[in-house]
Design a protein around this nucleic acid. Structure first.
Length: 257
DNA sequence: ATGCCGTGGAAACCACGA
C-alpha cells in the first residue's frame, strides 16, 4: 500500500499537475495540504473521475487539507486539532482509511519569528504533540503526515547557517519536533535514508530547484504498528520540474499488507 | 541579505507563503 503527501499550493490552480501525478504514481491514499479553496470549491468531481474519493476541510484563500483514497471512502475521525476552540485555520484532518488512522496536517509556517505567528506555530505544535500522544496510546496503526514546516536537522537544509533564525529551523522549532519524535514515532525517510540529503520543497525563485537549494519539511511519522511494515519511501522530485507546479514535491511511503 | 515567484481574493493591490 502506497501513501503519499503533497502540499499542492492551490488545489484548483495546480489541479492539472495534481491529476497527472495521481495518474502516473497511483497512491492508494494521498494527503493534500494548502488547498487554498473554500469547502464548496474543492474539485471533488475531477478527483472522483480520476478514481479518488475525498474527505476535505477547505478554507477561503489559505490553508485547507484533504485525504484521498483510491479504495474505500475515508471515514472522518476529526477535522480540527483538539485544544483550541478559537483556532479557525483548516490545518488538520484525520480519517480511518485502509485500516490505518491517517492524520493529515499543515503546521503553521511561523514567520516572522519571534512574533505572534511564531507563537501560534509553537502552540499549534504543542497541541499536535498532545494529540499525537493520545494516538500512540491507542496502539492503533497511525500515520501522521503532511507539511510540518520544520527542517528537523542540518541534513535537511541546503544551507543550514542561513536558516538559523527562520521559524522553520529555529532551536525552539527543532526542539518541538524532537519532543514529538521522542514519543516513539518513526521518520520514514530517515529510517530508510539516514545520511542522504533529501528535500521536499524548493523556492520558486533564484532557480532554487535547478540549484537543488531545497528543504525537507514534508514528513511521514509512523506509529510502531506501522513502522515495522515500512518497505520503501521517497520523493517524487520530477513533479517539481513540471510546468505550473507546486513549490513542494510529493513524498510517499510503501507499506507491506 | 533579499518574497527575486506564485496563488487567491479583492480590486487593478494586498496577504501570505518558507
Amino acid at each position: 500500500m502506497k501513501i503519499a503527501t503533497y502540499n499542492v499550493n492551490g488545489v484548483n490552480g495546480h489541479l492539472p499537475v495534481l491529476l497527472r501525478w495521481l495518474e502516473e504514481t497511483k497512491p492508494d491514499i494521498a494527503c493534500l495540504q494548502e488547498l487554498k479553496a473554500p469547502q464548496e470549491k474543492f474539485p471533488e468531481q475531477a478527483l472522483l473521475d480520476a478514481g479518488y474519493k475525498a474527505l476535505w476541510h477547505g478554507q477561503k484563500s489559505w490553508n485547507g487539507v484533504a485525504i484521498l483514497s483510491r479504495h474505500d471512502q475515508p471515514v472522518e475521525i476529526r477535522r480540527v486539532l483538539p485544544g483550541d476552540p478559537e483556532d479557525s485555520h483548516s490545518r488538520y484532518i484525520e480519517a480511518s482509511v485502509g485500516g490505518i488512522i491517517v492524520g493529515c496536517l499543515y503546521l503553521p509556517n511561523g514567520n516572522p519569528a519571534p512574533g505572534p505567528k511564531f507563537d501560534y506555530k509553537l502552540s499549534w505544535f504543542n497541541r499536535l504533540t498532545a494529540h499525537a500522544a493520545d494516538l500512540l496510546a491507542s496502539k492503533q496503526p497511525v500515520v501522521l503526515t503532511g507539511d510540518f514546516n520544520v527542517m528537523p536537522t542540518e541534513l535537511d537544509v541546503y544551507k543550514p547557517e542561513s536558516w538559523t533564525e527562520d521559524a522553520l529551523f529555529r532551536p525552539e522549532t527543532r526542539q518541538a519536533f524532537a519532543t514529538l519524535m521522542a514519543q516513539g514515532w518513526t521518520d520514514a525517510i530517515r529510517k530508510l535514508y539516514p545520511e542522504e540529503k533529501i528535500y521536499t520543497f524548493w523556492d520558486y525563485f533564484r532557480n532554487a530547484f535547478g540549484r537543488n537549494a531545497g528543504l525537507r519539511i514534508d514528513h511521514f511519522l509512523l506509529s510502531p504498528p506501522v513502522s515495522h511494515r515500512l518497505t520503501a519511501a521517497g520523493v517524487d522530485r520530477q513533479v517539481r520540474s513540471w510546468e505550473k507546479t507546486s513549490d513542494h514535491a510529493p513524498v510517499w511511503i510503501e507499506l507491506s499488507v
